[in-house]
Design a protein around this nucleic acid. Structure first.
Lengths: 200, 200
DNA sequence: TAAAACATACCGTCTGGACGGTTTTTATGC
DNA sequence: GCATAAAAACCGTCCAGACGGTATGTTTTA
């Protein structure tokens, strides 16, 4: 027997569905497709139902933003801990998480949402920068080198390419790039590993 | 005396002003600020006047897109030709152009528009990919290596960082990254320069 | 029975764009 | 040259639809 078969309403599931549908809408049809009506219809609730859970469009987007950031943060933390090499740990984890994203998996598509929100709204951009800089501060010993920064920069590029299906988003090419970047990481560690603080 | 002081109408100038104002509106206040009325007011014409030159909003955006791409293309071509080193010529030029962008110069701000359009609309994303792939095909001999791809990826990351004022957009850090990437370019050329075609 | 979880109906605003004018420029005939 | 017709440039108004949000119900859960 199921755990809760007699329960008709499941607000938590509805909220999750709302967020998921919002993400899918954005990724598949762009930001203008993110309307309250669309999200509600996709999630199988009425607009009133949606506004009950998220009192306004900004609340919905905020919820989506935080969920995606948390998801990304958790994955980075996970990859980070299972890495013995300390050199540029955070940035390498950052890159690996981005590289591991498979856009054909709807679950992972939602990260693309982040990219969209970042580039469109200065507000979320600032909040994202806050997250990055907090992590950068925590890993100041290992992730302030040019190599580390390059890894993250390349990750962002890969990320953007994924979003638009660019020439670098195809599996074989991407695999090669990744391999190169990991090599770069190893060699770069020897080349210039001095962490420099507070330039200027 | 001026060349054409007696001419009251100057449609070409109006069209240019329209595009410029559209770009500024997007960069300064985000995409939702791009309304026909706003653009028309900023450009000092009526909405009817705008619709005379660009029959519809999509036409306006299309015009803006093409102008910015052309601008970027011209600069890349320019940097490209004045580079004796053949290794990853196109990708290095791509990087240098992006790196040279000064967001405090309004003229160069408009490149940010491209980034916004790319990440928001799948349609323009495809058109951008078309451009990149065309250039990639033209420079197939030099720019299909992982290093070349990495340069462009990093450029995109830098670009995105510029748009949002991320931690890598500050001058000293950026300068360091750039220096590193140029070094990487030189060393990488020796490491693995074999062009591989048609993976899969 | 009170509150949470929904649905339905409705409203105000904004925006793209159609439409019919008016003025300016250009092309044409003489 | 010059009148004049035609085309291009431009303006102001109006409208239909979309969208965010409110207000008010109805059902389910605690």
């Amino acid at each position: 027997m199921m755990t809760k078969p007699q329960r008709k309403n499941n607000p938590d599931a509805v909220r999750a569905r709302l967020l998921e549908c919002a993400a899918r809408l954005i990724v598949d049809h762009g930001l203008p497709a993110l309307t309250l009506e669309n999200v509600a219809r996709e999630a199988g609730v009425s607009k009133g139902g949606l506004l009950h859970h998220y009192p306004g469009k900004t609340a919905l987007i905020d919820g989506l933003f935080e969920e995606v950031v948390d998801w990304f943060d958790a994955r980075v933390e996970d990859v980070l801990e299972s890495d013995e090499n300390r050199q540029a740990r955070f940035s390498r984890a950052y890159l690996r998480v981005v590289a591991a994203i498979d856009m054909s998996v709807p679950e992972e598509k939602r990260l693309a949402v982040l990219m969209l929100m970042l580039s469109s709204d200065p507000h979320y951009c600032a909040r994202w920068n806050q997250w990055v800089e907090a992590r950068l501060q925590r890993h100041a010993e290992t992730d302030l080198t040019p190599i580390a920064r390059t890894l993250r920069l390349a990750a962002d590029g890969l990320w953007l390419s994924d979003l638009g299906g660019g020439p670098d988003s195809h599996t074989p090419v991407r695999r090669e790039i990744l391999a190169f970047l990991e090599t770069l990481d190893a060699t770069g560690a020897r080349t210039s590993s001095r962490p420099h603080e507070g330039g200027q």
